[in-house]
Design a protein around this nucleic acid. Structure first.
Lengths: 112, 112
DNA sequence: CAAACATATGAATAGATGTTCATATGATCA
DNA sequence: TGATCATATGAACATCTATTCATATGTTTG
């Protein structure tokens, strides 16, 4: 059942995805976790590989991956004793790419 | 001076924007703050308007806006006793849009 | 000028979160 | 089967952060 809300409300009040979206953004809001996601943007990688590449403990990487998996940011595939992780879809890549462009954006002087 | 790093390193290690990016994502990682940003995506809005629309205290809105302004997510313009805020650039809109598409993405069953 | 309005700032605090360490589960190989 | 490797999980803790309340700054109008 969808909550009924007065028609002429601003987007965030009408159909409020804000909490959901915020949860996702928060996941990308930690440097270690973001690096893990970025590492998963290419071909599937192993927990151990991620840990090595980023100089993080396998335990920490695993903890982060659990959250990322739960939020469907990454997908896991078991193969023998290894588990490979990949970014779930292209949108994740775009989100990060767009934010990179935002960072690159030249910043004007402060406003009046 | 740019840190010298072995050439063939994965992207996140070579030229590491991760902390910068993570800081930005973290800002969008709170529902109230994200709603504020979304409210600023259209025409410039007043602190008071934002507070009313989102049922948040002006104080809280102001606190959030300070962070968003510092990170250049929004821009401020004073006009009389009002201060208008707008999203800083189109990238912000895209980041949010892409994340929305990610949420909309149909999710397969779990992997093997 | 004083009063009213709009926004900003600072301190205080309750709750969330990243990381570590120890340990468990699951899988391969001898 | 026992040993070893790869990943996962749970508890504990120090740190961070969103929110509130009180108060300050800045702006207009009477």
């Amino acid at each position: 059942m969808r909550k009924i809300v007065p028609f002429h409300q601003p987007a965030p009040a009408r159909d409020d995805h804000a909490p959901q979206l915020a949860d996702l953004f928060r996941l990308l809001g930690d440097a270690s976790r973001l690096r893990i996601v970025i590492t998963c943007l290419g071909t599937p990688v192993t927990v151990g590989d991620i840990a090595d590449q980023l100089s993080l403990s396998p335990s920490l990487v695993s903890h982060h991956l659990r959250l990322l998996r739960a939020a469907r940011v990454v997908r896991a595939t078991r193969q023998g004793r290894h588990v490979f992780y990949v970014a779930a879809d292209e949108h994740i890549r775009r989100v990060i790419g767009d934010m990179l462009e935002h960072v690159a954006e030249p910043h004007d002087e402060e406003d009046a």
